[in-house]
Nucleic acid binder design. Structure first.
Lengths: 357, 357
DNA sequence: CAACAGCGAAAAATCGATTTATCGATTACA
DNA sequence: TGTAATCGATAAATCGATTTTTCGCTGTTG
């Protein structure tokens, strides 16, 4: 008996108008803060709004404008801490500006990425924050350009000739990792990467290689790149270590260029009974909460999620408001956390190849 | 010079109509699949749609209906694998039905939860999937009821008198954990929980306690509940173990009722130099990818994310379509993965209290 | 042959706001 | 005093669809 109000229609601007004894246009103006309204009428409108519990319908409100107050966000996935935090940040920033964020996951598929983008275009979103599956030259960016959409690219990009980009400074972070590993005395390092994500991962690899070879010309760098998914990488790594172990020339450290690679490497170490950092050192690009809790804590490159998100939104809204000029390419500095998984090679004798299982 | 088409307005239904030489109403009918249109005209409409690349504006399309084809999703956070997967699943399911999912994070705040809900009400969403911060009796659910909103509650709920609920069967899973630990010979177990999330966590605790005591009446169960956040828990755990260690009566196993508790427990073990399962066994509620990669792999209760998501959407859409009847309360079975962090107590002598740091 | 039923499509109303054009009343100025 | 400018507010157009109503035409029937 207490829900008599539950089913009834929500009040519209006309209901407020008639309650206040003015026209709908006047109500709209009061709510928009236009000052050419007689104070007395303004007060009556405000009272009616209060009385009826009126709230503007954002959908109807957005009808008339070409760009609606909606921001689209497209991420390759939602399951990881990185993109989870990213969406969370973006949502907050959009909300602060009175915008609604619609987030969708491309599930690492470029085809889906484009479909989602088309749907966001249908919604006439004011702008899009796109974390491309591969890099800035994907079909989605082309679609955005062809349709005159406003957007900013983040994460797996370096620079684009049509859109602003914001990403972590992968090269600089990798250089710092190189300095640290060289400093510990490592001269044979395996780098694990995912080939598909071209731009960024290449920067991570080159940043590492350049600095490592500069500091230690005798450095030996092996690279295991996995083109497509993670599962093949597991096999690649297994084979890689099996071969080296026989020849007794396996690396003393592993630098993984992406989170799942770190997991796979760790898993392979465990299978072989190797412990960090005694048997091998490990550094991973991308931090995760669990890394400081494992035995040992895993050293990691921390991406500045908050900075990337806020700069992306900043530049996006400037474009939405019509700012011109050539596209910008921001690189945000990462932090490198050298945890216990990194030590000097051979500081403790290898625990011996603990076979499989 | 290739972007001449970029800036021009998108075609509306009237553009299609004039191109096809029919009225807008006819276009609408053809697109809606109404059969009372002359085949010839239908074809001309379809041709015009193709030619102009016309796509329905979902915002304008939704204007007329009371319930818009939008589903709201409110999660306590986006950063964890669980809620990340959940959002991903929900988004896919909504899309399948031609709905758009708008997701927002309440950031573990009931006040924010209600604000978001009010904003979703402003959007006239057709339905809401709400994972409440605390439980089904929060202010958000009250708001939904008072405003006649359609919704389904998930995760931290057991049953509600106004809304359908879908959640993991915490009690059954805890019972299974109890059986396993008792089976391994544990007779002194610490349960770590978060008090605030009343309903579910209580079910997890009771499910565990009942079964454990039933199977082993001499079982000793300690409980460390943390009311608010995670950080205090760290201190509580430290004090707990310090006290027991002195008296030499510390538990042989820990069962954490939520993910962050597992992390904190693990971290505390590490601080003390304890290893699982030799020094202490560990099982956590909620699985994570990293748990099968650590040394040792952490035993965990896996929540059926996919099932919860699809059942939640299923029941939500039934309500949206007007189905009546009393609210339902579904419990989806969990899977318990007993990994290496669980063993028999005292199977290997304790490695001695490795002090702090 | 007038009245009627049926069909297909156009015209008009609607959703809930914003924005532009219009209007009446008052004030200012020549 | 007559015309113009100003002010505040209302009516009407608009956004892009859907849905209801109306309408014209054809064919049937009494």
């Amino acid at each position: 008996m207490a829900q008599q109000e539950a089913q009834q229609r929500r009040p519209s601007i006309h209901d407020v108008a008639s309650h206040a004894g003015v026209s709908a246009a006047t109500v709209s103006k009061v709510l928009a803060g236009v000052t050419t309204v007689k104070p007395e009428n303004a007060q009556r409108v405000l009272d009616a709004v209060e009385l009826l519990g009126y709230r503007v319908d954002p959908l109807a409100s957005d009808m008339r404008r070409a760009k609606r107050r909606i921001i689209g966000a497209i991420m390759p996935e939602f399951e990881s801490e990185f993109f989870g935090q990213m969406v969370s940040e973006l949502e907050g920033l959009a909300e602060q500006r009175g915008y609604t964020l619609v987030a969708a996951s491309s599930r690492e598929s470029e085809a889906r990425e484009k479909e989602i983008l088309a749907r966001m275009h249908d919604w006439r979103v004011a702008g899009v924050v796109l974390a491309p599956v591969r890099n800035e030259h994907g079909p989605a960016a082309g679609f955005m350009k062809a349709n005159g959409m406003t957007g900013v690219l983040i994460d797996r990009v370096l620079a684009d000739d049509a859109f602003d980009t914001v990403s972590a400074d992968s090269a600089a972070a990798s250089a710092e990792v190189a300095r640290a590993l060289v400093g510990e005395g490592h001269r044979h390092i395996l780098v694990v990467g995912l080939g598909q994500q071209a731009a960024t991962v290449r920067a991570r690899l080159e940043g590492f290689r350049n600095t490592a070879l500069e500091l230690a010309p005798d450095m030996r760098i092996d690279v295991v790149l996995c083109e497509s998914d993670v599962e093949p990488l597991r096999t690649l790594l297994r084979d890689y270590f099996s071969k080296r172990e026989a020849g007794n020339d396996r690396p003393t450290a592993v630098y993984s260029l992406f989170l799942k690679g770190t997991l796979v490497a760790l898993s392979e170490f465990r299978r072989r009974g190797w412990h960090c950092p005694n048997d091998i050192s490990l550094v991973g690009f991308d931090d995760a909460e669990w890394m400081q809790v494992t035995w040992p804590a895993i050293a990691a490159v921390v991406q500045p999620v908050r900075e990337i998100a806020s700069n992306a939104m900043e530049v996006l809204f400037r474009r939405i408001e019509g700012e011109g000029g050539p596209p910008t390419a921001r690189l945000e500095p990462c932090k490198v956390l050298m945890r216990e998984s990194v030590g000097s090679p051979g500081s403790v004798p290898h625990s011996g190849g603990g076979d499989r299982q």
